[in-house]
Design a protein around this nucleic acid. Sequence first.
DNA 1: TGTCCATGGTGGTCAGACCACCCTTTAATT
DNA 2: AATTAAAGGGTGGTCTGACCACCATGGACA
Lengths: 209, 209
Amino acid sequence: MSITPKQKVYQGVLQEIRLFIEKNGLTSGDKLPSERELADTLQKGRSSVREALRAMELLGLIETRQGEGTFLSTYRQFHTVELLASFILRENHTRQDLILAKKILEKEAAKLASSGIACADIDELSAIIREKAGSPEQRHTAFFHLLFYRIDNLLLAKVWQLMEEFSGAVGSLYYEEAFYRELLKLYTSGEYLGIEELYEKQGHYKCKK
Amino acid sequence: MSITPKQKVYQGVLQEIRLFIEKNGLTSGDKLPSERELADTLQKGRSSVREALRAMELLGLIETRQGEGTFLSTYRQFHTVELLASFILRENHTRQDLILAKKILEKEAAKLASSGIACADIDELSAIIREKAGSPEQRHTAFFHLLFYRIDNLLLAKVWQLMEEFSGAVGSLYYEEAFYRELLKLYTSGEYLGIEELYEKQGHYKCKK
DNA sequence: TGTCCATGGTGGTCAGACCACCCTTTAATT
DNA sequence: AATTAAAGGGTGGTCTGACCACCATGGACA
């Protein structure tokens, strides 16, 4: 048991569990030793083992099923980041903070996506902004959802998604229709360098509360 | 106590703590009620309260100090970040996501800060990059910490800080010394438009693991 | 005024009790 | 023999209580 002097027992237990998982090549769905077994093996109290397990459970790393045992979860990438971000976003930020932060992410995603944008993507984006069945907010969400997942940076996508969800509480944040069309024009013509300028001129949320 | 049938006690406790924090407008450094008090107030066992607190602690949301109490964290302790990172940063792809996301935030902060940068700020930034007592990583953190708090967007600052903390676990990410100096030159000469170009040319982390 | 000690509070850890649930084995019934 | 029901042993879930180490405060004493 690798316990450093300042370390709490549950942290040492966490480390041992992590080592156990690695050593035994455990993967999603595999079963961990029982709480009592871990407590015995590690010579620690069962409560301390449970504290470690609860921490892991909140992180989404494990699932505990009463009567059955403790199992490794399907790994959800960035679940922890989501958790942390959700705490951060719940703090009392100003509306301006959220607006600016979200716009930055959207602008950078628009630029990053441009290098890998395909005709099919442009068609799909075009279909999104032309869709009249939903609201402008929904179109905005769908539009940037596609862009974020096109750039294949899950971290950015998740942070943006959380901001998008929280922005619903401070008023719907979307751009003028002309903005999306202009952005598509830049994509179509390959003038990706104009995106920063587009954001300077038209990158303002049509704020409706 | 809002406990749904399928929900474990520690999860309900977590929610109540979260609500308490929001309701009372608690912020970093503020003290939470004692374990015994929470157990009493929520009519749950102290162990269950501890399970919730351990989960929060692993996320770096709180710090518990023996003899003193439980406090909302200002920064995640290094050891906590290490533990967390060992669970969440498992793949190169994840690391790449983090690196890119962090750079985006830093670039945008550098640009946003430029409009309100004062001589005293430039002096302070200059002092930071000239400081030889610490490591390049520490200088990088201090440098951008100042920038993020200059733009007075707490949300961005906190999101970046989270990324900065985790990036320590994937290898130290900082720029060549010339980058910081060049950025300061741009600030000094007021050529803020050159920042995007600077990032194109020199905005690459000097990755050392 | 400064130092020391006692008190009351804090978190830290563990043992134990008992409950609900699950799966396997054994026994009873058809 | 096949099916169903009950028992047994294990799992996690929750709580209580005991005791420890540490901290801050207040009172007593020099």
